[in-house]
Computed example of a mutant assay.
Amino acid sequence: MGGMSDAPLIFDRPLLRRRRDRAAATQHGVAPVLEAAAERLLDRLDDTTHRFGRALEIGGRGLVAPGLRARGVGSVVSMDLSARQASLAGGAAVCGDEEWLPFAAGAFDLVVANLCLHWVNDLPGALAQIRRAMAPDGLFVATLPALGTLQGLREALTAAEAAIRDGASPRVSPFPELRDGAALLQRAGFALPVADVEDITLAYRQPLALLRDLQAAGEGSALRARDPRTPPRALFPAALAALPAGRDGVTATLRLLTLTGWSPGPDQPRPARRGSADTRLADALGTKELGTGEAPG
């Protein structure tokens, strides 16, 4: 089984595993947000009449597997970097790494990944491994934060730390852009790739609650380039005070990117062979077709 490429190591994966272990006992505090993301992922399955028998769900935090079973999926395997998180699904559980998938080729006809792929060092490589684990005509759906998520917090932390220390350490992870989503799927070998985004706005009467929620969900920074020193005492109060506040308090945006693609199969629609059309575009548009070098009359 092939693993990751020589992609740069951006994230501290052992640290992430420890944080997801701890979050298994604390993420109930942010259940509404996690449930909203899981529901949006599962809703995509209702858009197809295709029926699935063997599913792999990654990073579901115990919320996705029950939804798959409720939709008639006969066999569901739950995988997470954290063994504690994987066990929350209540069925077959695997402690595994998205960067080294421990599954045979063609093992699943459905793979869903919920709020976890933004922590892999080589996203194209991870998608390629997922694609390899899928049978023909299998469906892949993933949700992950997109560029724009926590942008206000990112800017406030950078400005506050630069003012205090004359330099800033990265404290919010980089996120993929919408325009890259379909291209990533296509590069990994998926057919019919689709990417779209939806904003989920979170409101906090107390700005500090935003940081507490990120910690409870195990979503604190796991960047290898983070400053290992203890943050200055004034950093977070200064950054949180700079966040714009409205009538409902401070708001933060989760820009949810959803990726959908199919593993290639014989029954999928394909573009027609070039030159096989029996109707001219000029006729459809009611215009005159000009030959090469012919000037319009």
Rank of each mutant, 00 (worst) to 15 (best):
H28K: 10
L117K: 03
V76R: 14
A188V: 06
G189T: 07
L243V: 03
P296C: 01
P176H: 07
A209R: 15
R61V: 03
A191V: 05
S82D: 05
G286K: 04
G62W: 04
A168T: 04
L45F: 14
L281A: 13
S82V: 03
T158I: 01
A217M: 15
A284E: 15
P269N: 09
G246R: 02
E289A: 15
I130L: 13
D180H: 06
D199S: 09
A133K: 05
V77W: 02
L223N: 06
A24Y: 07
G59N: 06
L101V: 13
V141N: 11
E289P: 01
A217Q: 11
M4L: 14
G74L: 05
A284I: 14
S169Y: 00
A191S: 14
R19M: 13
G167C: 10
R19F: 10
M1K: 11
P145T: 11
A238L: 09
R54K: 12
G60M: 10
D109I: 01
V76S: 13
F108L: 09
D12E: 13
G60F: 10
P193D: 05
C95A: 15
R273Q: 09
R51C: 02
Q129E: 07
S221P: 02
E39I: 01
E289Q: 15
P244C: 07
R54G: 04
Q186G: 08
A92Y: 04
P264R: 12
R154H: 15
R154Y: 05
A191H: 08
D137W: 03
R224E: 05
D227L: 00
Q186V: 01
R224W: 02
S5H: 06
